[in-house]
Amino acid sequence: MSGARARFAIAAVAVLALVGSLAGMSLLLARDALPGDALYGVKRTAEAASLGLTFGAEPKALKHLEFASARVSEIETLARRYPGRDSAPVGGYLTALTDFDNDAAAGSRQLIALATRADGRQLDALHAWARQQSARLTDVTSRLPAAARNRETATHGLLDKISTRAAALFARMDCYQITSGSFDDVGALPAAGVCEKATGTAPDPNAPKPSGVPGASAVQPTVPPRGTDPPTPGLPTPALPPLPPVARTVPLPQPGIPQPGTPQSGAPQPPAGLPTVVLPLPLPTVELPPLLPGLPGVRIGE
């Protein structure tokens, strides 16, 4: 009984190894499969599995665009392999164009959703990608069968729609309202109203820059006079009341001693009309302590 179980386990391992090797070989051969080939379905299944193992909204969107670019490469290979239009596989072209439209629209929707919630850098890349793929398809249009050329016209229209949408949304990235709130097969629609600038947008490049930054305008700071404290930033400077006039001290005249400014005989007299200062009399008495011990004090004013 144990021998039968061992043989069964060995057989199961061999089957799994055979299946794994066949799957790996199929994936390896399917890498170059074209639409219409037997392994093309395996190739698309592997791409779907790769997309499921990709994490993040932007990596998933870029994966869709990568698959769409691969469809254009397959169309170019079909055009080289079948130069005659009558012998070209029309079904293969139609399959590639249909898969291209699906992946291009899915990648466009996801990138537009990300860009309109951020700085919009994905919109420029999406616009450039759509223009590039449109140019690649234009190069092979003349070598396609009539039915494939008619179908390719719709694909060109989709690419023009994606590039125009990305450019229109990128032009409104500084507006308060970027999208209209409506969506279609390639993503959000741009708002149709007047572009009102949103707060916090980039400053005017012509505005003077703050000092200390390269390229700033030369603005000299205001230096307060020496001996004064600079005002505290953000606080109002109080208005000081005017100072009272300074009183002039006039020396008292002493009898018999000429005072400075007293007119002498023969000297020119000052012009008339000058104000006269009247001092109150008698003067107050001032007592000074004795200069030496035993001497009386000094009294002034009596």
Rank of each mutant, 00 (worst) to 15 (best):
L240H: 09
F170I: 09
P255R: 15
V277F: 12
S182F: 12
G256V: 14
L28A: 09
D160I: 03
V298T: 07
G261R: 06
D160Y: 12
A113T: 15
T138S: 11
E74H: 01
V219N: 01
S21A: 14
G24V: 13
G24R: 13
T249S: 14
A216P: 03
A6I: 08
T179W: 04
K161G: 00
I112W: 02
A247Y: 12
S26K: 04
A168E: 09
P221F: 01
L288W: 12
I112K: 01
G193Q: 09
D229N: 00
L243F: 13
P225G: 07
P210W: 07
G24C: 10
E152D: 12
G187E: 01
A9M: 06
Q220C: 09
R117T: 11
A135W: 00
E74N: 13
L291V: 15
T98F: 02
P282C: 10
T116L: 13
D185M: 08
P253T: 03
A147T: 05
L281R: 12
L281H: 11
G181M: 08
G261S: 12
A115E: 01
A79Y: 01
A202K: 08
L94D: 00
T116H: 02
A88H: 09
R149H: 14
D184Q: 02
S73H: 06
V213T: 11
P282M: 06
L18S: 07
L27H: 12
P231T: 00
G52C: 14
S163P: 08
G215I: 02
A191Q: 13
A68Q: 10
A130G: 09
R44F: 07
G52R: 01
Q220F: 00
V90N: 03
I300F: 13
N206D: 05
V15S: 07
S265K: 08
T199N: 08
V186D: 07
D204K: 01
L169C: 00
V13R: 06
L126E: 04
T138D: 13
E66P: 06
R226Q: 02
L252Q: 11
A239V: 14
L288G: 03
P224R: 02
P268I: 04
P236E: 03
A17W: 10
Y82I: 06
V90P: 10
G56P: 04
A11H: 06
L29H: 02
V72M: 15
A113Q: 05
I10F: 06
A49T: 11
A192K: 12
P233V: 00
G84V: 04
Q254A: 04
A46V: 12
Q254C: 04
K161M: 02
T179F: 05
L62Y: 05
A166C: 12
A166Y: 05
L16V: 14
A46S: 07
L292W: 06
S265F: 14
A154D: 14
D124K: 03
P258Y: 05
G20S: 09
V19N: 05
G181T: 03
L22P: 03
A23K: 10
G212T: 10
P251C: 09
I75M: 13
R7C: 10
A61W: 08
A106C: 04
P83W: 11
P145N: 12
G297P: 15
A128K: 04
L144K: 02
H64P: 12
E287P: 09
A272P: 14
Q259V: 12
R117Y: 02
G20R: 11
A239T: 15
G92I: 02
A46L: 15
P251M: 11
S50H: 06
A118F: 11
G227I: 02
F8C: 08
A4E: 06
L283A: 07
A171Y: 09
P231A: 00
